[in-house]
Design a protein around this nucleic acid. Sequence first.
DNA 1: TCAGTTTGTCATTAT
DNA 2: GGATAATGACAAACT
Length: 612
Amino acid sequence: MGGSSRRQRSTSATRRRADRRRACSTTTTVADEETTTTTTTSIHGLSSILIWILATSSLIVVYPPPSQTSYDAVAAAAEKLILDDITPSLKMYGQYDHQDQEQQQQPQMIPSKYDFPQFNRRMGLRWRDDDRMRQMFAQPHHQQQPYPMMNPVLTEHHPTHSFGMPSTSSHQGTSYGYNSPTPTLEDIDLIDCLWRNDIAGEKGTTQVSPADQYVSDLQMLTEKSTVETLTTEESLRYEDLSKNFYEGFYNPYSSYPKAHSEQMKATTPDQHHHTPTDGSDSDLPTDEDLEELLKEVDHEESELNRVFENKPSENPVINNVSLAEATVYTQANLTEMQELHDMCNQVNITASSVVSASESATLFNVTDEVTREMWQESDLHPSDLFPQSDYMAVTAQNNTPEAITSNGTFEHAYGLPPISPLSLDFASSSSTGRQQQTQTSPASATVTAVATQGILEYEGQRNSFSDSTTDSSSPCSGMSSPSYDHESRFYGKLLPHRENFFDRSSIPSSRNNGAVATKINRVMSSGQRKRGRQSKDEQLASEHSLPVTAHQISEMSLSDLQNVLKMDGLSEYQKQLIRKIRRRGKNKVAARTCRQRRTDRHDKQTNMNHYI
DNA sequence: TCAGTTTGTCATTAT
DNA sequence: GGATAATGACAAACT
């Protein structure tokens, strides 16, 4: 009942936010038109070229770089022109209004049920996060560089664009060029909406405008996601819709349109009737309302708490804790991953736990003794959990595990951006001999409290490897078991002989694996496999903190390989592993070509026999 | 569960 | 002597 109530509130809030969006988008549209008009007026009298640019609706306003002293003033002026609340609703209505324009010439089209101001021209506005860029240039090391003022930029689709739809999709690979005839995903979405609209019209059922269709789809997927798992297609759709629909919520300029819209209300009160939620503006929650709501929720006597007053176990709010902390674990929702989540929370790694390389600290330094033993005895390596923070590496100095504080250079390609500065620099490093130092930054690589999130993200990718790999090749077992409890060819051959590099007595045994290891192994092996056979070398490269991926190892030139092998901080064991990975990688390609040739020969022979 | 296929890996040889 | 290519054989992974 509580969940139902909350869901109803959520649904209601979603609708109200949608209404609010429409209202806001309408106001912003007016503001945009005025801004455009102002801009047009301000440059009136300039050369005919500029007029022509305006007439052809291809306007790019470029401000000269401001002086340092006038930075704030210019920034403030620029902010006035930043039209940052271009929501999907606006885009959709903009598109729809544009259709309305066309429908005046094509009366057979369905009239809009919304009374929006008409665009006088094709409209395309691209919002760019210049605030972040400004912040970046405000960094101390950028102080010497003038801030390259680039906002605002008004872009409009080329008149020849087939769809005239502002491309707001975050999906790269779709049509970026205005002249590209390829529709964007949003174009396709719009086509789909209009198609459904047409079908509804033919059937005589209620027709839904594209914008309403977006909202409807978003709401439907939201509700569906609460009761069952969405399909991949639905998830992508849901993500896309949410991202677009709520982008204004995360907009760093979110305060501007509000103030601006209030100003517009004051100056043009007659515009109110344009909102689709006519007369309902007063019902829309303001930020102040939300703040009051939050305050009220915190209060014990709050209305929401009273709803659950008889069911404290179902009330995650009553104890004034977050929803995440108060999740009630039941038989139904207690998964192995959640068990792992709990166990990892027991590892006292908090956001305040900072490990620096200068301290030669390991992850275990921030854990208690019991937990440390549990981790050491398990088959799970800390780098499995914290691939983006700290790796356990074997240094050349003492061949003992030591923390490497990652500055990004050791991050691998498992779900991470393919950032290997080393590899990216190979072209130059091979000629200049410059080498990247990888263990440089003593910067506080925070072992974040979202370690479990790292597990969730990383685990899924790591699970793409074979179960046997996950079970037997995990670095702790590999590191900790030179006798190789699992006598497989994987241990005996894929890896260099550890006896040559390790002192057996210094390596803890992996025998008495406790419940933690069992559960972790079960979790790690329960994920979905990636289609196709997976090379183990990528995993090995990651587990042994190699500075490059297995693919890069096998593909790089010999000189680059030599540079890698010369790197400081690489143990002999790691170097041997690199050589083995490279040999396997080369041989893998050779085997493919060999088989291809064999197949070709066979086919050729078959054809010859056929002719004979 | 089993058979067939694909593909990674190792060993070997030659360059 | 090391690196690489080619190839047969084996086995794991996949269909």
